[in-house]
Design a protein around this nucleic acid. Structure first.
Lengths: 344, 344
DNA sequence: CTGAAAGCGCTAACAA
DNA sequence: TTGTTAGCGCTTTCAG
């Protein structure tokens, strides 16, 4: 692209480099570099002329060259468990934490890389990311954070943080999780406060760590309120909703997710039980559809956006030399009709 | 890190470079480079010795250096509309296309960058991405693809593809969209085939392009079946579900989303109308909760995973010199109870 | 405060 | 088939 003056037109096609700025201002490239990075002394005079030239030529420093010279990638990588397939990826809550991560990463001047990764190939993927210098730090889901992976990360002094409480604990492993135990506690207390007396925890897989923690908080609350443990029931089969409701043993349910809660709602309707007057329901996760349920569902809201932001904060700190850190994000009760008795 | 032999231990902390391989094998770095890139002639003998050394030292080429030398980023960037906030980002379908994109991008040996971007700042964001050479191509949502942005992209010869049919059409603009018109057609035809005769399109904002296209396909189908246009109704207020149902004018509904469909289901229950015997319902989007609805919802399934993969394919082709391209992804009917009459 | 020169790790003409 | 050399665009000692 040649312009009227016979010179190559610099711009998008032919990039303008630091040399162009130097030439235009009549200084060396190192001076321009100093002015740009800002962490060296420059006369006010030349600094002004340089930034003016930068403006005029619409100069943007080549990030690749800069990163090569600096020996860093200025990039954070979020690993995704691709083996779960529609599990992790189509999960609205996961998506929200991506949003939180992206925002925080951007604010720190880093870029966000996303890499899908199958269970058996974490090690290879990590090699590609770390050894090829594509990233300075890694955010990893708990499902991928098995012992060998953590050992590799820790042994290699790779800054990383797990997006949830990992199975294997270590002070060398950073993680950020939702305070599931607190959530279980809040949900149970809320039902008790509203006059429901015989509570059950419903839904979820007993083997999942976060379910265990939710149940733990739930039980702790009952205990603190002097409730008999026999009045508690943990179920992992959603089909059992009708059974458990018709048994008449319970009048309040803390559900592990919206699906479980929906089953309870349907079962109640089938048994002609009224929600919330006969039975109260609180569920984990504020699904978009929860307010449209009949009745609208009370929820323990999980702030995955904050989780993502916090994970990023910890990770960037670690990249800058800080020690690993662990953190729990508080949950919040969103009260709707499903847990608010109108009569009696 | 000094090992027993008094030498610096190369590995994760001290990277092993192409020089180390060259030294170990006793060849020049260019020979090693040639062996690695594979697009030059090398004697079988040295190639073997090199790949052996690569293996032994666990060498991984520095991607930054490689990209600088090649003048490319080997990165594709997905722009996210951050102004929609919980809109785009907590959208399960968006998430699925990210998955599709990531998989395809990885297969092509590219990395995926994700950047949130506010409506007013697209141009600045693009400058950062393009002029700083952070990415070779861009995938952009239709909400961000206004005229000025498209002009900038096209004028700058930046490979890009829009994740949906943009308002402003141009053969220079690549896009991949769901075939919404076809979806509307399939949904309507399905209801007609199942004996529903007076159809309405329900839900969605009349101003959204994809809603218009769905409605267009819907209407086209009615016309092809000799149906009177007066029997068609387009509504954008979900609260009107009870009104429209109690009017008795319609016995079949094509809903724009699961929320609209859920409103119809609730209204029918309130009016003591039976779904599917009195009223048939088909909705766009196969939400995870659709099969659990009462009755389970028939859906027009939107393959956003395929959409993401196709967008990537087109983008990478363009990076490699191909022309812009447009593409429509077929929809699929998932038949469930909500549109299947049991009696007469 | 500024410039010259070397270097980040890799690739690619050009010669041999 | 291979080595030499220069260079990608930027940063950073080291002198001045």
């Amino acid at each position: 692209m040649i312009n009227a003056s016979g010179c190559i037109k610099k711009g998008i096609d032919v990039p303008v480099t630091i040399k162009d700025i130097a030439k235009k201002v009549g200084v060396s490239t190192s001076t321009v570099s100093r002015a740009l990075t800002g962490r060296a002394t420059i006369s006010e005079e030349t600094r002004k002329r340089i930034s003016q030239a930068v403006e005029e030529l619409n100069y943007h420093p080549n990030a690749i060259a800069r990163n090569l010279a600096n020996g860093i990638a200025r990039t954070v990588c979020l690993l995704i468990d691709a083996s779960e397939d529609s599990g992790a990826f189509s999960n609205a809550f996961f998506t929200n934490s991506v949003f939180g991560i992206e925002k925080a990463v951007q604010k720190c001047g880093y870029d966000l890389l996303i890499t899908g990764c199958f269970d058996g190939k974490v090690s290879k993927t990590l090699d590609k990311l770390i050894l090829e210098r594509k990233t300075d730090g890694i955010i990893i889901p708990p499902s991928l954070a098995c012992k060998s992976v953590l050992d590799k990360l820790i042994g290699g002094h790779i800054p990383f943080v797990v997006l949830g409480e990992p199975q294997k604990q270590s002070s060398l492993c950073s993680w950020v999780d939702i305070n599931n135990s607190q959530g279980g506690m809040i949900a149970a207390q809320h039902l008790l406060d509203n006059g429901y007396e015989r509570l059950a925890f419903f839904g979820g897989k007993e083997t999942d760590g976060f379910v265990q923690r939710r149940l733990g908080g739930f039980l702790e609350c009952l205990e603190a309120n002097g409730k008999n443990m026999e009045e508690v029931s943990f179920l992992n089969d959603a089909c059992a909703a009708v059974d458990i409701l018709s048994s008449g043993k319970f009048d309040g349910f803390v559900c592990n997710d919206n699906f479980a809660a929906f089953e309870i709602l349907k079962a109640a309707k089938a048994l002609n039980l009224d929600v919330p007057n006969d039975v109260g329901v609180v569920t984990f996760d504020n699904y978009p559809i929860a307010p449209y349920m009949d009745p609208p569902l009370s929820c323990i809201d999980i702030d995955t956006l904050a989780q993502g932001a916090e994970a990023t904060r910890i990770l960037i700190n670690q990249i800058n030399g800080s020690h690993p850190q662990q953190s729990l994000i508080s949950t919040e009760l969103i009260e709707r009709a499903s847990s608010r008795r109108v009569k009696g």
